[in-house]
Nucleic acid binder design. Sequence first.
DNA 1: ACAAAAGTGTTGCTGGTACACCCATGT
DNA 2: ACATGGGTGTACCAGCAACACTTTTGT
Lengths: 240, 240
Amino acid sequence: MPHRKKSNINITPVQLAPEFQFALSVDCVIFGYDRGVLKVLLIESDLPSFKGQWSLLGDLMHPDENLDQASHRILRERTGLKDMFLEQVKTFSSIDRHPAGRVITTAYFALVNVRDYQLKKLDHNLHWHVVSDIQSLAFDHKEILDQSLEALRKKIQEGPIIFNLLEKKFSMRDLQNVFEQILGVSMDRRNFRKKIFSTGLLKDEEEMEKQVNHRPGKLYSFNYETYEQLKKKSSSDFRF
Amino acid sequence: MPHRKKSNINITPVQLAPEFQFALSVDCVIFGYDRGVLKVLLIESDLPSFKGQWSLLGDLMHPDENLDQASHRILRERTGLKDMFLEQVKTFSSIDRHPAGRVITTAYFALVNVRDYQLKKLDHNLHWHVVSDIQSLAFDHKEILDQSLEALRKKIQEGPIIFNLLEKKFSMRDLQNVFEQILGVSMDRRNFRKKIFSTGLLKDEEEMEKQVNHRPGKLYSFNYETYEQLKKKSSSDFRF
DNA sequence: ACAAAAGTGTTGCTGGTACACCCATGT
DNA sequence: ACATGGGTGTACCAGCAACACTTTTGT
């Protein structure tokens, strides 16, 4: 696999028919959950006009791929991860959103397991940033981040995508913590457990947390098989 | 205002750098509610490969506008309506979705009041089609319609956008009917009224339906001022 | 008079929320 | 022993669903 340079989009101005005076890119908002905190993977911008600022991982779309494929390619090239959870958020098209010319970008959000990512680190210009600490980003990427986070908030309540942020086996506390981080609320522990267990979709792994300096919690996994069966039967949309 | 030709996108092949081998278009899914039935405004396709098929209203994006502006322009040019409710749904980018070349399209859905539209009819190749009767459309427009309808279903439950489909003054029956048409369910009349009234956002217009061959119902309007105040105060997201 | 839809309350159920004590582990 | 978070049950309340009869208009 060719290792593409990690620079931001760089466009050479050309004289073109108006219908073709656009470039199309994909920007990925890569969310990760790292020991209690929601983070996003950013790259240092090397465009002069955004010197020292951070930006999302993006690239121009290739002629032989669609947007979904482009977003997967970006994730693969930059993080080494395959088959990640990726979802289209919105397309951003302000006329002056990119200093180099007319670049329309489609935002995707990705949910990755930080531990998987660490095994395959490829690029030392990438860093995880605490989402709630981010004040500004290069281009219109702060707005893209905000809207992606909003989309994520909705989606985690519609389906069991949140497990993409956790390891296969996780504690109840971690699960509740991710919800709280993303939604920006705090929840009652007993009610949370009740609600989660009432779905019948968690499998008790008969295993315990280790190396915690308090009473260790049980580990669970999400039962995708049961979930798929349940989806087929109750055709109405499932609220997690 | 120049009256643009109503043909579908027509691209002259040019030799270009790969980054520019795209065209960008907007397709509008224009929903209307007409005497009890949910409809969508379609145009007869004049591309040879889609002869006789219907398609959504679309056009290429102009270099001096963003996607939101393009969608408003399309609606204005084709229906004469301004300031319509328009919302971005998704961007469709299959490699072979358009026979003339690589065209990426962003779908918007619009909600129009059919009576307003009829006052300003501009184009006799446009026709309203009953949404539930549509089996297939040109290009990938059936998929775009399906996903737009799905987006509409979600959105009408998150905010009071449904009133864009009705006249300013409407009967309780019409309101319930639009919900039922869009969601594809039937609801209990008493519970529906209770729920709607409990928001406190309907204004009794002290007026009655006319020329119906049964007991006439009261007419109501949606109180946007009260709604805006309510939104400010309760910062949490309002469920309609 | 008849047909068609408007208008109107009560009851039961379900799901959400609030809340406090004992337990297992590491230091 | 102490600190830290794990594990557990109950009672209340609000919102949703089910359900039937009388009223008003046009024909």
